[in-house]
Nucleic acid binder design. Structure first.
Lengths: 160, 160
DNA sequence: TATTGTTATACTCTATAACTATA
DNA sequence: TATAGTTATAGAGTATAACAATA
């Protein structure tokens, strides 16, 4: 057991328990902590497939919406257009996705996933589902669906 | 209404609705989206007080645990020791926090908030509470406390 | 004029290795 | 040897301004 410091103002056990007034009530902080923790585990899992969370999400949208454009994809995932470019560059380089000029609008690209891209998505998603199963194993079926619903409620809240 | 592209593979309205099989079921992704959105609004609010979310959290722990050491603080907030240094440098520079050598262990610093630091915390926290009230206004009291409980459950889950 | 994709850039957040001074 | 705080650094993630090609 580590000793307290000499000035006797620190009446805490070591390590410090964080369940106090302000911090405890700081919901957004706890939300981010939890999100970061989940994100870290998913990232670690996806590393086996050379994917990041955002990369897999991009691949998923393309697989499920073949032919969509980059700007639609960016809107769908709420990411900025510039940040999409390098992601697609990489997916295209790995032959997981194809960019094709749209004949009717030569500014735009139509995005499609290759069979290899689809296969990778299925495998990677199965792996993340297994991890999520463990991550959320503390919540029973009801609590889990309530949680998902709560996320949607907050996310779909009208902007101020 | 924007037209579909020519190859007729994109049967989506514009903008693309994202409520599909894989992406829809990718819980961690939606969690992060929501967390980022909340974080962005809180960050914008705290800007009025020249604070970031992590800075306010640090200040809160110090106010509530006067005399604690940097390593305890880092453990409490699950942040790496190196990342704490510049945060404390700034808080100290602004006379919101004081670092004092611990007499019994001259390697360590005891941290305390100044009265001005405490005042800033109270004001900033009141502002974030107002924002959170709006952010989570879609959830009634029961759903909100269930949500908080669910976060704690996932976060306290034993590591693998 | 407006939009699509792009380049360049910057800022925040998080993580790790290695140093110093003390223990 | 180990620990507390520090320095330097690197990698994600996110955001904005400005450009060329096209509408």
């Amino acid at each position: 057991m580590v000793n307290m410091n000499g000035n006797n103002r620190n009446d805490l056990a070591d390590p410090v328990e964080v369940d106090d007034a302000v911090l405890h009530r700081f919901l957004s902080y706890h939300l981010r902590r939890m999100s970061n923790q989940v994100q870290a585990e998913i990232a670690r899992t996806l590393k086996d497939y050379d994917l990041r969370m955002i990369t897999m999400s991009v691949l998923a949208v393309i697989v499920e919406h073949p032919g969509l454009r980059q700007s639609q994809l960016a809107d769908a995932l709420s990411i900025e257009r510039p940040n999409l470019v390098s992601i697609l560059d990489e997916l295209e380089h790995r032959s997981l996705v194809v960019r094709e000029r749209v004949p009717t609008d030569r500014r735009a690209y139509a995005l499609t996933a290759t069979p290899s891209g689809e296969r990778l998505l299925r495998r990677a998603f199965a792996a993340t589902e297994a991890v999520e199963e463990r991550l959320f194993s503390g919540l029973d079926e009801k609590r889990r669906s309530d949680f998902v619903e709560a996320m949607a409620t907050v996310r779909n809240r009208r902007p101020d």
